Simulated assay, not measured.
Amino acid sequence: MTDRGALLRLVRTGRAILLLPFLGIMIVFALEQFGHAHRFTFEPALTVGPALAAVVSNSVWFPLAIGAAALGEAFGFAAWEGTLAKAVHGASILAIVLISLIGAASVLLRNRQERELADARLVSEVAQRILLRSIPERIGVVRAAVHYAAAAAHARIGGDLYEVVQTRFGVRAVIGDVRGKGLAAVETAAAILGAFREAAHQEQALDRVAGWLADSLGRALREHESEGPQGMDEEFVTLALVGVRADGIVEIVNCGHPSPLLLREGAPIRFLDPAYTVPPLGVLEPEEVRPPVLSLRLESGDRLLLYTDGVIEARNAWGAFYPLAERAPDCAVGESPAEVLDRIHADVRRHVGHNLGDDAAMLLLQYAPAPAPTPATLTALVHPRDADPLSRD
């Protein structure tokens, strides 16, 4: 392979950055030619080689190798200029050796930190799979999709929660937002999700599911209170519960959460507000949690958009909130639920101009019952041989 071909290969593989230390040494060499003519030296600048090597490579030996090359060039400069016995040469040699050793040590520490970060990300992925499980594209009579972005750097889970399950009472979903961030918020979200996955199958009335969650949250907050100074009255969870029956009847229970949006083709957007507002879970005693149940009938293709305040409270550089109600109407038809949420999230990012400062979750449920079987299909199911003339003897 030619030298040009080798260089192109480095560029294509993204390893051309490894040439920077060599480029730095070559620049110092060229400056030294200029300095020799004017009776001063650039020999101390050779430390740029091992310093750059520590930045661009994860190999411990690379700064040492570049440092060795820089030492060779330094001795060459000193022999050419007759400065082997001068203090500037000794200082340059010492500086190159120290920078090379420090560069190798920094690479070693950076590699260790990257391994620890990779382990932490692996634990985060496992926790996400346990707490925030993936949602299938279809659950019963519902097509579903979710989009979640955690605010914490390098985190994949946070204080927002969601779940969709198929029960004997229909498809049930929850979306919520735990006050605060960090590990405490994740623990509270885990308590809520665990309670929902049990209560959704046991309780027929959706408001009683909310009471079950409030009771579980109360126990979790009491445990937190016994472990630290933060009191029960300082933590709460906003959430919305949705139940979709096979006949298209949807029930919604809202506990201090942003109201879901009803997206219907050819109709204006509609906020599904409760008859009266109730505070988030954790504010009232569990036995006092009796939220109203909003009930309505869905048409085939109707979509329910549930979201957390991290979406609608996302601000741009001028302090304006993201106008979800203005951007959502065109999501009533067309793309699949997953594509809709991806597009909304990208739009929120454009509105803010950077990563979101709060956890943000969106859940989209589309009522899509299976088409009723035709008489020919029923005949084929009951008398398969009669339905297919080719199958007769």
Rank of each mutant, 00 (worst) to 15 (best):
E114F: 13
T377R: 12
A152T: 14
A267D: 15
G182D: 07
P260Q: 02
A87H: 10
R297N: 11
A95H: 10
A338D: 12
P286Q: 03
R297D: 11
F29R: 11
A155F: 05
E125K: 11
A6M: 11
Q166K: 11
L183W: 02
G357D: 13
H36C: 00
R12S: 02
P384S: 07
P292R: 08
R112G: 07
R222E: 09
E285F: 10
V28M: 08
F34R: 13
D330A: 14
L363Q: 04
R349C: 14
D207L: 06
V253E: 01
H257L: 00
H351F: 06
L363G: 01
A79E: 11
H89R: 04
I99F: 02
E288F: 06
A45K: 05
A104G: 08
Y148K: 00
F321S: 09
F62T: 00
L305E: 07
Q366R: 13
V142W: 01
V283W: 06
D393G: 15
F196L: 01
M362W: 04
R179E: 06
R327F: 12
T83A: 10
L217N: 02
P384C: 05
F40Y: 15
L18M: 09
Q366G: 08
A144N: 02
G14I: 02
G310T: 10
G310Y: 04
S134K: 12
D386C: 03
H351L: 06
E137Q: 12
G67C: 05
A118M: 04
A332R: 10
R290N: 15
R197Y: 00
T13Y: 12
T277V: 13
A151Q: 07
H345P: 02
P63S: 04
R112N: 07
T277S: 13
F77V: 14
Q128C: 09
A153Y: 09
V289Q: 01
K86R: 15
S226K: 13
R349Y: 12
G5F: 06
V97D: 02
A173R: 09
E203S: 13
A150K: 04
L304R: 08
H89P: 00
V88E: 13
L7Y: 08
A95K: 03
G182T: 01
G194P: 00
T308I: 07
L213K: 05
A53Y: 02
G103K: 04
G35A: 04
L94P: 00
D207R: 14
V56K: 07
R219A: 11
T374I: 02
T188C: 01
G334C: 10
D309P: 06
P375C: 04
I99Y: 07
H147Q: 11
I175A: 01
G90M: 07
L221F: 04
L272G: 09
R208S: 14
L71H: 07
E288S: 08
A79Q: 11
